[in-house]
């Protein structure tokens, strides 16, 4: 698949993106495209700014250079009201779930509906129950967020994220810290929502197996650059040793086991210093 066709059919197009936090460069000249109706995964080790990327797409952070187009609109150029209108059409699932802790499951899912629509309470009820049914938690509607397990909290957050029937949904590390069953449930949910609702999906993750299982296209990011991209099959057979190490999960390789330090022997002999 050529780059031109991807950019042509993309819902999100990021071109020449650079972003820095203080002196630390998070992204350098990154370009990537998220295709409509497909599941695109952005993978890479922890601390490579994957969450930052989602925040840039959502317009919460502004890049230093480059452009971010979502559905043909330049996110950074939008006025506040326009940006909010765009966000209504984007669902985002935070790593922690980000449920509002002072409301029940039901009220959490109803929250975006009540904020953005003037629907009667009876219709909100039907919608909320539908969304909760989709994630299999219709029976847990009266629980408070602190009574939920991590996996359930994420599913409630997912129901909330799709409450307004968005065109796109972004998952921030959906599998992290989940037991195998929860992982399986989430994998199944992400895939089925993508298929049944035709949702464009972005997954940011470092869980190789689950992500590769459902993704249509994968970008691998490290040190602020894209070092590999392609379908899961292509990525698996990538010639880049770095991508190989990441996909295999080997302890040593291009990414060294040791944090950069001076020679071990010299360090031991340097007495008289506290560190």
């Amino acid at each position: 698949m050529g780059d031109s066709t991807r950019s042509h059919n993309s819902l999100v197009a990021i071109r020449g993106l650079s972003f820095a936090r203080g002196d630390k460069k998070i992204f350098q000249d990154v370009s990537l495209y998220i295709e409509r109706g497909k599941i695109t995964a952005i993978m890479g080790p922890s601390g490579t700014g994957k969450t930052t990327l989602l925040k840039i797409i959502g317009g919460q952070l502004a890049p230093a250079k480059g452009s971010v187009m979502v559905d043909g609109k330049n996110v950074q150029r939008l006025r506040r009201a326009e940006l909010f209108n765009l966000r209504k059409r984007i669902g985002m699932l935070f790593q922690s779930g980000a449920l509002l802790t002072d409301m029940s499951v039901y009220d959490n899912v109803a929250f975006p509906l009540r904020e953005h629509t003037r629907l009667p309470e009876s219709m909100i009820r039907s919608l909320v129950l539908m969304k909760l049914q989709a994630v299999g938690l219709r029976g847990a509607r009266s629980l408070m967020p602190n009574e939920l397990s991590g996996g359930m909290a994420r599913r409630v957050a997912l129901a909330r994220a799709i409450a307004l029937d968005p065109m796109m949904i972004m998952y921030d590390e959906p599998f992290t810290g989940q037991d195998p069953i929860s992982k399986g449930v989430l994998v199944h949910l992400i895939k089925s929502l993508n298929v049944t609702l035709g949702l464009t999906t972005i997954i940011v993750s470092h869980d190789v197996v689950e992500t590769a299982h459902i993704a249509d296209y994968i970008y691998v990011i490290s040190d602020g650059k894209i070092i590999g991209e392609g379908t899961p099959e292509e990525i698996k057979h990538s010639t880049s040793p770095w991508v190989q190490q990441f996909m295999e999960g080997s302890a040593d390789g291009p990414v060294h086991f040791h944090y950069p330090a001076k020679e071990f022997q010299n360090d031991l002999l340097a007495t008289g210093k506290r560190y």
């Binding site: 966000r87 209504k88 935070f94 980000a98 802790t101 975006p112 904020e115």
Partner: peptide, 18 residues
């Protein structure tokens, strides 16, 4: 502070709620 720490404020922003 806890709402901020648990990304609730950020989440609200992403739901287009100020």
């Amino acid at each position: 502070g806890l709402m901020k720490a648990t990304e609730q404020l950020s989440g609200m922003e992403m739901m287009a709620v100020d």
